[in-house]
Protein backbone atom coordinates (compact mmCIF):
# COMPACT_ATOMS: atom_id res chain seq x y z
CA UNK A 1 0.00 0.00 0.00
CA UNK A 2 1.20 3.48 -0.69
CA UNK A 3 0.22 6.59 1.14
CA UNK A 4 0.23 9.97 -0.56
CA UNK A 5 3.68 10.63 0.80
CA UNK A 6 5.65 7.76 -0.61
CA UNK A 7 6.46 6.28 -3.95
CA UNK A 8 6.21 2.56 -4.33
CA UNK A 9 8.66 1.70 -7.07
CA UNK A 10 8.82 -1.77 -8.56
CA UNK A 11 12.13 -1.84 -10.40
CA UNK A 12 13.25 -4.31 -13.05
CA UNK A 13 16.49 -6.11 -12.12
CA UNK A 14 18.39 -8.36 -14.50
CA UNK A 15 22.01 -9.09 -15.28
CA UNK A 16 21.95 -11.38 -18.31
CA UNK A 17 25.56 -12.37 -17.56
CA UNK A 18 24.74 -13.64 -14.07
CA UNK A 19 20.98 -14.06 -13.53
CA UNK A 20 18.79 -16.90 -14.76
CA UNK A 21 15.76 -14.64 -15.12
CA UNK A 22 14.69 -11.05 -14.53
CA UNK A 23 13.02 -10.11 -11.27
CA UNK A 24 11.48 -7.03 -9.70
CA UNK A 25 12.64 -5.26 -6.59
CA UNK A 26 10.11 -3.11 -4.80
CA UNK A 27 10.98 -0.24 -2.52
CA UNK A 28 9.27 2.66 -0.81
CA UNK A 29 10.74 6.07 -1.39
CA UNK A 30 9.63 9.28 0.35
CA UNK A 31 7.82 11.46 -2.18
CA UNK A 32 9.35 14.90 -2.55
CA UNK A 33 8.06 18.05 -4.18
CA UNK A 34 7.96 17.65 -7.97
CA UNK A 35 10.15 14.54 -7.66
CA UNK A 36 11.29 13.00 -10.95
CA UNK A 37 11.67 9.29 -11.75
CA UNK A 38 15.44 9.87 -11.80
CA UNK A 39 15.27 11.09 -8.19
CA UNK A 40 13.59 7.84 -7.23
CA UNK A 41 16.38 5.82 -8.85
CA UNK A 42 19.06 7.98 -7.19
CA UNK A 43 17.36 7.43 -3.86
CA UNK A 44 17.32 3.68 -4.43
CA UNK A 45 21.10 3.58 -4.80
CA UNK A 46 22.33 6.42 -2.60
CA UNK A 47 19.92 6.11 0.31
CA UNK A 48 18.46 2.62 0.20
CA UNK A 49 21.64 0.93 -1.03
CA UNK A 50 19.80 -0.95 -3.77
CA UNK A 51 22.33 -1.43 -6.56
CA UNK A 52 20.03 -0.85 -9.50
CA UNK A 53 21.82 -0.06 -12.75
CA UNK A 54 20.52 2.92 -14.76
CA UNK A 55 22.11 5.42 -17.10
CA UNK A 56 21.94 9.17 -16.78
CA UNK A 57 24.29 12.10 -17.13
CA UNK A 58 22.67 15.53 -17.09
CA UNK A 59 19.27 15.28 -15.39
CA UNK A 60 17.83 18.05 -17.58
CA UNK A 61 17.00 16.67 -21.04
CA UNK A 62 20.31 17.34 -22.77
CA UNK A 63 22.07 13.98 -22.73
CA UNK A 64 19.09 11.85 -23.77
CA UNK A 65 20.48 8.80 -21.96
CA UNK A 66 18.04 8.14 -19.09
CA UNK A 67 15.20 6.52 -21.02
CA UNK A 68 13.16 3.96 -19.07
CA UNK A 69 9.64 2.65 -19.24
CA UNK A 70 7.27 3.73 -16.45
CA UNK A 71 4.02 1.84 -16.08
CA UNK A 72 4.43 0.71 -19.67
CA UNK A 73 5.15 4.13 -21.15
CA UNK A 74 8.62 5.00 -22.52
CA UNK A 75 9.86 8.21 -20.86
CA UNK A 76 13.00 10.06 -19.86
CA UNK A 77 13.58 9.48 -16.14
CA UNK A 78 14.78 13.06 -15.61
CA UNK A 79 11.69 14.58 -17.18
CA UNK A 80 8.91 12.28 -16.00
CA UNK A 81 7.29 13.16 -12.71
CA UNK A 82 7.27 10.39 -10.11
CA UNK A 83 3.85 9.01 -9.16
CA UNK A 84 2.85 7.05 -6.04
CA UNK A 85 2.92 3.71 -7.79
CA UNK A 86 5.42 2.96 -10.51
CA UNK A 87 6.70 -0.09 -12.33
CA UNK A 88 10.03 0.89 -13.85
CA UNK A 89 11.27 -1.25 -16.74
CA UNK A 90 14.02 -0.87 -19.33
CA UNK A 91 13.00 0.69 -22.65
CA UNK A 92 11.41 -1.86 -24.97
CA UNK A 93 12.71 -2.62 -28.48
CA UNK A 94 16.31 -2.75 -27.22
CA UNK A 95 18.36 -5.56 -25.60
CA UNK A 96 18.92 -5.27 -21.84
CA UNK A 97 22.54 -4.80 -20.74
CA UNK A 98 21.81 -4.74 -17.04
CA UNK A 99 18.73 -3.71 -15.05
CA UNK A 100 17.44 -0.51 -16.71
CA UNK A 101 20.46 -0.10 -18.97
CA UNK A 102 19.81 -1.01 -22.61
CA UNK A 103 22.03 -1.54 -25.62
CA UNK A 104 21.23 1.23 -28.11
CA UNK A 105 24.09 0.45 -30.47
CA UNK A 106 22.01 -1.15 -33.24
CA UNK A 107 19.66 1.84 -33.29
CA UNK A 108 22.51 4.31 -33.24
CA UNK A 109 24.08 2.41 -36.11
CA UNK A 110 20.82 2.74 -38.05
CA UNK A 111 20.98 6.50 -37.49
CA UNK A 112 24.59 6.65 -38.60
CA UNK A 113 23.79 4.74 -41.78
CA UNK A 114 21.36 7.53 -42.65
CA UNK A 115 24.46 9.78 -42.85
CA UNK A 116 22.88 12.55 -40.80
CA UNK A 117 25.61 15.09 -41.59
CA UNK A 118 24.92 18.14 -43.71
CA UNK A 119 25.93 17.66 -47.34
CA UNK A 120 26.20 20.97 -49.10
CA UNK A 121 25.75 21.36 -52.82
CA UNK A 122 27.74 24.58 -52.83
CA UNK A 123 30.82 24.96 -50.65
CA UNK A 124 30.30 26.90 -47.43
CA UNK A 125 31.29 30.54 -47.90
CA UNK A 126 31.50 32.59 -44.77
CA UNK A 127 29.92 33.33 -41.42
CA UNK A 128 27.14 34.25 -41.14
CA UNK A 129 25.27 32.61 -43.97
CA UNK A 130 22.50 34.78 -45.40
CA UNK A 131 19.56 32.71 -44.12
CA UNK A 132 16.39 33.70 -42.29
CA UNK A 133 14.32 31.98 -39.63
CA UNK A 134 11.76 31.24 -42.35
CA UNK A 135 14.37 29.18 -44.21
CA UNK A 136 14.85 27.12 -41.06
CA UNK A 137 11.21 26.83 -40.07
CA UNK A 138 10.86 23.12 -40.87
CA UNK A 139 14.28 22.11 -39.56
CA UNK A 140 13.75 24.24 -36.44
CA UNK A 141 10.84 22.07 -35.30
CA UNK A 142 13.25 19.14 -34.98
CA UNK A 143 16.29 20.95 -33.64
CA UNK A 144 15.92 19.97 -30.01
CA UNK A 145 15.74 16.25 -30.72
CA UNK A 146 18.30 14.86 -28.26
CA UNK A 147 18.26 11.33 -29.75
CA UNK A 148 16.93 9.71 -26.62
CA UNK A 149 15.25 6.93 -28.66
CA UNK A 150 12.14 7.09 -26.47
CA UNK A 151 10.04 7.36 -29.66
CA UNK A 152 11.75 4.31 -31.09
CA UNK A 153 11.03 2.42 -27.89
CA UNK A 154 7.34 3.28 -28.26
CA UNK A 155 7.10 2.32 -31.94
CA UNK A 156 4.77 -0.66 -32.47
CA UNK A 157 6.26 -1.38 -35.90
CA UNK A 158 9.65 -2.13 -34.36
CA UNK A 159 8.19 -4.71 -32.02
CA UNK A 160 6.83 -6.53 -35.08
CA UNK A 161 9.31 -9.13 -36.30
CA UNK A 162 8.21 -8.53 -39.93
CA UNK A 163 9.77 -5.09 -39.97
CA UNK A 164 13.39 -5.67 -39.07
CA UNK A 165 14.51 -3.25 -41.79
CA UNK A 166 12.57 -0.29 -40.37
CA UNK A 167 15.00 2.32 -39.05
CA UNK A 168 12.54 3.58 -36.45
CA UNK A 169 11.30 7.09 -35.71
CA UNK A 170 14.41 8.43 -33.90
CA UNK A 171 16.67 7.71 -36.86
CA UNK A 172 14.13 9.23 -39.23
CA UNK A 173 14.04 12.42 -37.14
CA UNK A 174 17.80 12.66 -37.50
CA UNK A 175 17.49 12.16 -41.22
CA UNK A 176 14.71 14.73 -41.52
CA UNK A 177 16.64 17.19 -39.39
CA UNK A 178 19.46 17.30 -41.90
CA UNK A 179 17.25 16.86 -44.97
CA UNK A 180 15.25 19.95 -43.99
CA UNK A 181 18.33 22.14 -43.49
CA UNK A 182 18.01 24.79 -46.22
CA UNK A 183 21.49 24.08 -47.59
CA UNK A 184 21.30 20.29 -47.65
CA UNK A 185 21.67 18.43 -50.93
CA UNK A 186 22.22 14.87 -49.67
CA UNK A 187 20.52 11.76 -51.07
CA UNK A 188 17.87 11.77 -48.40
CA UNK A 189 15.11 9.91 -50.26
CA UNK A 190 17.36 6.92 -50.85
CA UNK A 191 18.28 6.89 -47.15
CA UNK A 192 14.63 7.09 -46.07
CA UNK A 193 13.68 4.21 -48.35
CA UNK A 194 16.64 2.16 -47.18
CA UNK A 195 15.32 2.72 -43.69
CA UNK A 196 11.99 1.26 -44.89
CA UNK A 197 10.09 4.45 -44.05
CA UNK A 198 6.82 3.10 -45.45
CA UNK A 199 6.75 0.48 -42.72
CA UNK A 200 5.60 3.38 -40.53
CA UNK A 201 1.85 3.10 -39.92
CA UNK A 202 1.37 6.76 -38.91
CA UNK A 203 0.01 5.82 -35.48
CA UNK A 204 1.41 8.89 -33.66
CA UNK A 205 2.90 6.86 -30.79
CA UNK A 206 6.26 8.53 -31.45
CA UNK A 207 4.73 12.01 -31.27
CA UNK A 208 2.79 11.11 -28.14
CA UNK A 209 5.83 10.06 -26.12
CA UNK A 210 8.48 12.55 -27.31
CA UNK A 211 9.92 14.12 -24.13
CA UNK A 212 10.88 17.35 -25.90
CA UNK A 213 7.50 17.71 -27.58
CA UNK A 214 8.46 17.11 -31.19
CA UNK A 215 5.63 15.99 -33.45
CA UNK A 216 7.78 13.18 -34.79
CA UNK A 217 5.21 11.83 -37.22
CA UNK A 218 4.05 15.05 -38.85
CA UNK A 219 7.19 17.17 -38.69
CA UNK A 220 9.74 14.49 -39.53
CA UNK A 221 8.37 11.22 -40.91
CA UNK A 222 5.50 12.59 -43.01
CA UNK A 223 7.76 15.26 -44.48
CA UNK A 224 10.21 12.57 -45.59
CA UNK A 225 7.40 10.37 -46.89
CA UNK A 226 6.10 13.22 -49.01
CA UNK A 227 9.52 13.73 -50.48
CA UNK A 228 9.78 10.00 -51.21
CA UNK A 229 6.36 9.90 -52.85
CA UNK A 230 7.30 12.82 -55.09
CA UNK A 231 10.76 11.58 -56.00
CA UNK A 232 10.78 7.79 -56.06
CA UNK A 233 9.36 6.15 -59.18
CA UNK A 234 9.90 2.56 -58.25
CA UNK A 235 9.59 2.16 -54.49
CA UNK A 236 6.34 0.28 -53.78
CA UNK A 237 5.62 2.35 -50.69
CA UNK A 238 6.08 5.62 -52.54
CA UNK A 239 3.97 4.34 -55.42
CA UNK A 240 1.24 3.24 -53.04
CA UNK A 241 1.26 6.66 -51.38
CA UNK A 242 0.89 8.41 -54.74
CA UNK A 243 -2.02 6.20 -55.83
CA UNK A 244 -3.68 6.62 -52.43
CA UNK A 245 -3.44 10.42 -52.72
CA UNK A 246 -4.63 10.46 -56.31
CA UNK A 247 -7.71 8.42 -55.42
CA UNK A 248 -8.63 10.83 -52.67
CA UNK A 249 -8.06 13.79 -54.94
CA UNK A 250 -10.35 12.22 -57.54
CA UNK A 251 -13.11 10.68 -55.43
CA UNK A 252 -12.69 12.16 -51.96
CA UNK A 253 -12.04 8.71 -50.50
CA UNK A 254 -10.02 5.65 -51.33
CA UNK A 255 -11.45 2.72 -53.28
CA UNK A 256 -9.70 -0.38 -51.93
CA UNK A 257 -10.02 -2.57 -55.08
CA UNK A 258 -8.53 0.17 -57.29
CA UNK A 259 -5.83 0.97 -54.75
CA UNK A 260 -4.97 -2.71 -54.51
CA UNK A 261 -4.92 -3.28 -58.26
CA UNK A 262 -2.89 -0.18 -59.10
CA UNK A 263 -0.51 -0.44 -56.18
CA UNK A 264 0.10 -4.17 -55.87
CA UNK A 265 -0.80 -5.35 -59.38
CA UNK A 266 -3.40 -7.79 -60.64
CA UNK A 267 -1.82 -10.98 -59.33
CA UNK A 268 -1.68 -9.87 -55.71
CA UNK A 269 -5.15 -8.38 -56.00
CA UNK A 270 -6.58 -11.69 -57.22
CA UNK A 271 -5.03 -13.44 -54.24
CA UNK A 272 -7.07 -11.17 -51.95
CA UNK A 273 -10.30 -11.82 -53.86
CA UNK A 274 -12.01 -13.73 -51.05
CA UNK A 275 -11.46 -10.82 -48.68
CA UNK A 276 -12.78 -8.41 -51.30
CA UNK A 277 -15.93 -10.52 -51.75
CA UNK A 278 -16.52 -10.63 -48.01
CA UNK A 279 -16.15 -6.86 -47.82
CA UNK A 280 -18.52 -6.41 -50.78
CA UNK A 281 -21.16 -8.63 -49.16
CA UNK A 282 -21.02 -6.54 -46.00
CA UNK A 283 -21.29 -3.32 -47.99
CA UNK A 284 -17.77 -2.18 -47.12
CA UNK A 285 -16.72 -1.67 -50.75
CA UNK A 286 -18.41 -0.91 -54.02
CA UNK A 287 -17.45 -2.36 -57.38
CA UNK A 288 -16.78 1.10 -58.81
CA UNK A 289 -15.36 4.09 -56.97
CA UNK A 290 -18.03 6.49 -55.71
CA UNK A 291 -17.36 10.20 -55.48
CA UNK A 292 -18.12 11.65 -52.06
CA UNK A 293 -20.53 14.52 -51.60
CA UNK A 294 -18.76 17.87 -51.39
CA UNK A 295 -15.76 16.76 -53.46
CA UNK A 296 -15.17 20.47 -54.29
CA UNK A 297 -14.18 21.02 -50.65
CA UNK A 298 -11.71 18.15 -50.81
CA UNK A 299 -10.17 19.59 -53.96
CA UNK A 300 -9.89 23.01 -52.32
CA UNK A 301 -8.04 21.39 -49.44
CA UNK A 302 -5.65 19.71 -51.85
CA UNK A 303 -4.99 23.00 -53.58
CA UNK A 304 -4.31 24.73 -50.29
CA UNK A 305 -1.95 22.02 -49.05
CA UNK A 306 -0.05 21.68 -52.32
CA UNK A 307 0.35 25.43 -52.63
CA UNK A 308 1.85 25.38 -49.15
CA UNK A 309 4.58 23.02 -50.28
Amino acid sequence: MTSGNTVSAKIFRYDPAADKAPRYETLEVPLEKEMRVLDVLDYAVENAGVAVGYRWFCGVKRCGMCGVSVNGKPVLACWEKATPSMVIDPLPNMPVVRDLVVDRSALEQATLEMEPCLKRKEPYESFPEPLTHRDFEDAYRLMTCIECYVCTAACPVLSDANHREFAGPASLVQLAKVALHPKDAGERVAAALKGDIYACISCYECSNVCPVGINVLEDAIEKLKRRCAAQSESNPGAKHARIFTDLIRKFGRIHPPTLMRQSKGLMQSVSKMSMALAMYRKGKVQVRPQTVQGIEEVRKLFKAVEKDQ
Binding site: L118, Y124, P128, T132, R134, Y140, H181
Partner: peptide
Protein backbone atom coordinates in the same frame (compact mmCIF):
# COMPACT_ATOMS: atom_id res chain seq x y z
CA UNK B 1 34.68 28.31 -34.34
CA UNK B 2 31.63 30.03 -35.80
CA UNK B 3 32.39 29.40 -39.48
CA UNK B 4 33.27 25.74 -38.84
CA UNK B 5 30.18 25.12 -36.74
CA UNK B 6 27.90 26.85 -39.21
CA UNK B 7 29.44 24.83 -42.02
CA UNK B 8 28.46 21.72 -40.06
CA UNK B 9 24.88 22.98 -39.76
CA UNK B 10 24.71 25.01 -36.55
CA UNK B 11 21.74 27.32 -36.64
CA UNK B 12 22.15 30.51 -34.67
CA UNK B 13 18.66 31.83 -34.11
CA UNK B 14 17.67 34.53 -36.58
CA UNK B 15 14.54 36.53 -37.18
CA UNK B 16 12.38 36.48 -40.32
CA UNK B 17 14.68 39.02 -41.96
CA UNK B 18 17.77 36.93 -41.29
CA UNK B 19 19.23 39.05 -38.47
CA UNK B 20 20.62 37.25 -35.42
Amino acid sequence: FYPEMERRGLYIRRNAEGKF
